[in-house]
Design a protein around this nucleic acid. Structure first.
Lengths: 125, 125
DNA sequence: TCATCATTTCAATAATCGTTCAACCGATGA
DNA sequence: TCATCGGTTGAACGATTATTGAAATGATGA
């Protein structure tokens, strides 16, 4: 839909059609919001960016981020709850990786978009 | 990059190449996180879903959402700070619309993805 | 089995975020 | 100019959310 169409405000309330759907699917909306919320924290997003370079265990991530394992583990828990990362055990280590290619693309796209979008404000695409 | 590659944990620390980049662009990461965070709240995402049906003024949105204008305005402020919506004045009204087609797609994709992803847990795309 | 290493969980504290109401602003029309 | 309507802002409060260290778990090797 064209983002620059005519608003309803112009017509008098009396003869307005009921254009807007009563409600969006609340469940889907909640899941989508949860996914975005998990992505919406710099330390967690940085963790995903690290994982975009390849799988890693918690201690490696903790070293890279200069944080305690507990902190990293808590963040990974949030990312896992949002199905953004997957884990598997390998001996004593637990290896984390981005859940699928879709997430890889999402992270790269977000960073690319954010890299190009600053300074002037980027009015069109 | 393939999400299921070999983790660094396997090789001994001593002879590990410095594979991981020292740090991601922090500024871009921060902006990307801010964008996701703005999307990561059900009421705000619902507002965007409403705007995906066409531009609207604050009072219409308030009516649709059954909320006070102040609340709606505060939410729109967050969305605007993340460059997700645009506003223009029209007489007494302030008309909000999704910032561009890119945002329209983002919202629709998120909702579509969340609609298909439930129930079983969705292990592969 | 015991000791140890890697990781997770728990609980408490600190920080952040969303909502609300009241005051304020900006445009309109009398 | 004043009154009014639509919208915004600011501050206070309550509710989430993140971080931290300590205790618990799980796998390994002696």
């Amino acid at each position: 839909m064209n983002p620059q169409a005519e608003p309803l405000c112009e017509e008098p309330h009396s003869q307005r059609r009921e254009t807007r759907k009563p409600s969006v699917d609340e469940a889907a909306l909640g899941r989508a919001a949860e996914l975005f919320a998990a992505l919406g924290d710099p330390p967690r997003l940085r963790l995903l960016a690290l994982l975009a370079q390849g799988p890693a265990c918690v201690s490696d991530l903790a070293e890279d981020e200069q944080e305690g394992m507990s902190t990293i583990s808590q963040r990974l828990k949030v990312l896992r709850a949002a199905s953004l990362v997957r884990r598997r055990r390998q001996g004593k280590h637990v290896i984390y990786a981005l859940a699928d290619q879709h997430v890889v693309d999402l992270v790269f796209n977000a960073l690319a978009h954010a890299s190009e979008a600053q300074v002037v404000g980027k009015s069109k695409e």
